[in-house]
Amino acid sequence: MVEIWQGLQSAFWLIATLDADLVEITLRSLQVTLTAVLIACALGMPLGTFLAIQRFRYRRPVIAVLNALMGLPPVVVGLIVYLFLSRSGPFGALNLLFTPTAMIIAQIIIVTPLVASIAHQAVRELWSDYHDLLLSLNATKRQRMLTLLFDARRALLTAALAGFGRAIGEVGAVMIVGGNIDHVSRILTTAIALETSKGNFALALGLGFILIGLAIAVNVAIHALSRTERESIW
């Protein structure tokens, strides 16, 4: 009990004084996750939109695969990325294993299906609303897609936030492919795992609070977004 109390105190102290290690790890976490989410959005949103408005032969199977990928255990994603990037793997020559880039790749694979799936659902709904109007006004395929992406902007932002929430708290995959190397690939979740196992609760708790803070911020943002949606504020 005393240990926890002391841990809490020093955790607050670390945050209040902007401890160098803590700041470094937090920034790396944000950098990795934001990059991954950005790329996942760039891939997943057009993909989701395309699946919502374009009929083609293998549409249903593709959607089924997408939904299945959403449930992929991150640890397994980590394992697969590891195999691809390891020295003897197909991309071994790129020397990416145990770098932030490797972690970004793993997170992209974890987040893209989630973003694509939420985008697909939102755009499909909107498309059934807009279908007749867009056809009546002779919107080109490109214009239809842009209109839907723009008008589904709240739902898409929600998708991005959900993706961020999933990636920032993920530990299995980034541990495997990043290796949790100090000053190189150590991020919030992997650092917490390590510091806890070392019995260094102060740093672990401090990092934990930051992670919780980020998770809460994301949820508050999602909630606020759904409110503007209901009240049609923008």
Partner: peptide, 24 residues
């Protein structure tokens, strides 16, 4: 032009809804 039995409203301002065909 076609005005539907149930009006289709884009999630934009009233003015931008009306400007929409011109922008297309």
């Amino acid at each position: 032009a076609f005005v539907f039995q149930t009006p289709v409203v884009l999630r934009r301002s009233v003015r931008d809804n009306i400007a929409f065909p011109l922008i297309l």
